[in-house]
Design a binder for these strands. Structure first.
Lengths: 198, 198
DNA sequence: CTTTCTTTATTGAACGATCAATCAATAAAG
DNA sequence: CTTTATTGATTGATCGTTCAATAAAGAAAG
């Protein structure tokens, strides 16, 4: 069947298969044979399109990060105003959209977080994404808070988002996204409204 | 030299070597040879004392969990009163003591979090610990809040603790423990004091 | 005291299994 | 006939486990 335009299709199939395999067996027990078998192709094709297993994992992480960035940007652009609260809400909602808050995506993300601490290439990806989230949040808080307060509020919100998300990933039960969003948005309110004491 | 009382010594040496190796190379690239070499013993001794690599990893996780439990319990017992705020502060401080908030312990913990999602034996350990933290927090909040509010506040505080801790583990910079404690304690205050709107 | 026996501690080479990567072969499409 | 796509057996390396051998330290017996 081969000839043209197979590359983007295969790449997507393999990235999806990678997340599904990590979800099922964990990154440590995910072999290229399992992944390729799930994608319906041979093992050799991975080296052909991604240069090897590492390339596939990095591409998978890029894909997840890209989807997160898109889901946040989409909600922020939907805001016509420059209201800080609305933008912070959008950021929170975007982080709990994550295209899909599926167990597969969350487990894959956590696996990459762990791996990124020892693989410079993945660490750079994670850092860039992290910095962007933090500085976006800080920028919005600065509209209503003093620089120092804004930084603290941003640290708190970022931690709250990651913590809620982490706990959603760790518990086998369905992740209650809406209550997590509500909790994080209430934190935003507390930071914006209760700033009179300092 | 052998004869008596080597077991507890070797076990501790190997657990320490495990955390140090995970800190340096990551769990995925930690072999029993590296670990045993760092502990100054042969590879075979691991199977002798822990039954195998899995046993060593489970023992290491138990050790970390035990140290966390101890550091929280110690600070709570230091409280003579039954004041909710003081106990919540103690819980927060205990979680950021973690015996040592070293990179080695944090990386090991994160590695086990990731692994526990696919290994029932580790998952049970993690769940028990998680439940205990959550119910302890909920119990304290219930002294001043309605059940539903207490649960929400507990979810928020637990997430905030985990999130701050996770971000401390992910950033290469030194983890600013005191500011993390301050931030989490301020969250406790906001939950306890600002409950008049509901 | 010293000789034998037993237990505990430890080693490290050998084994078997697993896995990522390679590459020559194949097949379809232009 | 060339290019793109794909296969899957082979290869080479790695790793966890096993196990027979060894060593030291008491214990028992003379």
């Amino acid at each position: 069947m081969p000839k043209v335009g197979m590359e983007p299709i295969r790449r997507q199939q393999l990235i999806d298969a990678t997340m599904a395999t990590i979800d099922e067996a964990g990154l440590a027990d995910s072999t290229i044979m399992q992944i390729s078998r799930r994608a319906g192709v041979s093992a050799g094709i991975i080296s052909h399109y991604f240069g090897g297993k590492d390339g596939l994992l990095e591409a998978t992480m890029r894909h997840i990060l890209s989807e997160l960035g898109t889901s946040v940007a989409r909600r922020r652009q939907a805001q016509s105003s420059s209201d800080a609260r609305a933008h912070l809400y959008a950021i929170v909602e975007g982080n709990f959209d994550r295209s899909q808050v599926s167990q597969a995506v969350m487990k894959t993300w956590l696996a990459f977080w762990t791996t990124s601490m020892h693989k410079p290439s993945l660490q750079r990806l994670q850092r860039v994404n992290d910095r962007r989230l933090y500085s976006n949040i800080t920028y919005q808080f600065r509209k209503h808070l003093m620089p120092e307060q804004a930084r603290t509020a941003a640290r708190g919100l970022a931690a709250l988002i990651d913590g809620l998300w982490l706990r959603g990933a760790l518990t086998p039960e369905k992740f209650d996204t809406s209550s997590a969003v509500l909790l994080a948005c209430r934190y935003v309110d507390e930071q914006l409204d209760g700033s009179s004491t300092a």
